[in-house]
Nucleic acid binder design. Structure first.
Lengths: 228, 228
DNA sequence: CAAAATAGTTAGTCATGCCTAAATTCGACG
DNA sequence: CGTCGAATTTAGGCATGACTAACTATTTTG
């Protein structure tokens, strides 16, 4: 257990870097300087400098010219920020009338300012939810969280909306089709109509509508924007 | 009207200085460098430096060796912070189970992080209160606020608590008595018992109890910790 | 496989906001 | 009216965290 006794307080910058690196290391691969710079909107040398400071504090490991990986301590900080962010979003949507798509910026600032005690009170007021309004899992105070449960587009009831998360096909032809149709991860769609007997389904996306065959739609994996 | 169009964003420090200066200028007199330094826990040279920067931005006026006064723009910023602070305290007490005396630190950090929109949503959820849990008036979004209404200690019902705000006597003997009894502005007391026919009243203060004559108690002015 | 393109790092600068030490100013008092 | 002491300001330094310019390592490609 890597204890982190009596560490000096983390700055807002440090928290943002660690959260960004956590997000970028979903694949388990080392994270590049320029990916961090792009995500945070900073110059590459600024990131290089911060990487040095963070690795001196054992929050990440740096192989020069190769990239960085979070240490256990760094991941702990990142997961604490993820928990804060997602709980704040859930709270603002449930109790203060924010909508799904407007909470992000507010949470981005608040996550650095709330105390541990306030976060736990908010969690309790929400009934200790395990997922946020975007369907993303909320880590518990130890950093453990549920896996995301993806729902195929075919299983989203007509009239509901969902966000595309993963496309479960390797066929280039299908990927190309989905791409030009705008059906990429991160896109929100509303399901309009299911034809019976495993027929095509009609969805609204942005301004227009699309009709998707059942077989392809089964490979479009979504999350639904509910607080569960 | 001193417009403040397209000003650069204010830092947390700047907001804290302006709020402190506002608090210290209750009398309308210029505020001294050392009073600001004491209140914020900073060295006098640090305050001197910040005063220079703030007066360059026309947030305050500085007469060297004489003290500072807020400009209209500076007062506007200060009142916005006061509004935020008091609304946040009220919100945390009403909706998240904080007690009167533990909200301050949390509000102190949050007041710099919440957006204008969130503050207004919180105000609305509270029913646009005009006073915070300490009885202090909450400025409206234009900076206007009600005067504090003081209640004489004699008018606080038995069983209730109040905070002493002002002592309305100039008699040194009485002031000395109140001082040694611990009955100074800022002290919280609980009223235990009123003797009939304008007799003395018994109050609890800290650990012990005191019995105060009716005439003197009438001059001890309080506010009551309710959200009105 | 070498050169060009790309990615990453080092060097040096700047703004903010804090500090201590050393002047300076003001006001009071003999 | 001069001197002493307290308050204030100036001078100079430091940490954080950003930037640009210049250099170096790696990867891609003809």
């Amino acid at each position: 257990m890597t204890a982190q006794l009596a560490s000096e307080p983390l700055t807002r910058s440090v928290e943002d870097y660690l959260k960004a690196i956590y997000r970028l290391s979903a694949e388990g691969a080392p994270v590049s300087t320029s990916d961090i710079a792009d995500l945070l909107g900073l110059s590459a040398p600024s990131v290089s400098g911060m990487i040095r400071r963070l690795s001196e504090q054992d929050l990440l490991e740096h192989a020069p010219y190769r990239g960085v990986l979070l240490t256990a301590a760094g991941r702990r900080v990142a997961l604490r920020m993820v928990r804060r962010h997602r709980l704040i979003e859930a709270y603002l949507v449930k109790f203060l009338g924010y909508s799904w798509d407007t909470v992000h910026d507010e949470a981005e600032r608040l996550e650095h300012a709330v105390s541990e005690g306030l976060i736990e009170r908010m969690a309790e007021a929400l009934g200790n939810p395990r997922f946020d309004p975007h369907g993303d899992p909320i880590p518990d105070s130890n950093g453990a969280m549920d896996e995301l449960v993806y729902t195929p587009l075919t299983d989203i009831p007509a009239g509901e909306t969902a966000e595309i998360r993963r496309v479960d096909t390797g066929q280039a032809e299908r990927l190309r089709y989905l791409e030009q149709a705008g059906l990429t991860p991160g896109t929100r769609v509303a399901v309009r109509r299911h034809e019976p007997f495993h027929g095509p389904i009609t969805i609204a996306i942005g301004a227009g509508e699309r009709v998707i065959g059942h077989e392809l739609a089964r490979q479009v994996l979504c999350v639904r924007p509910e607080i569960r």
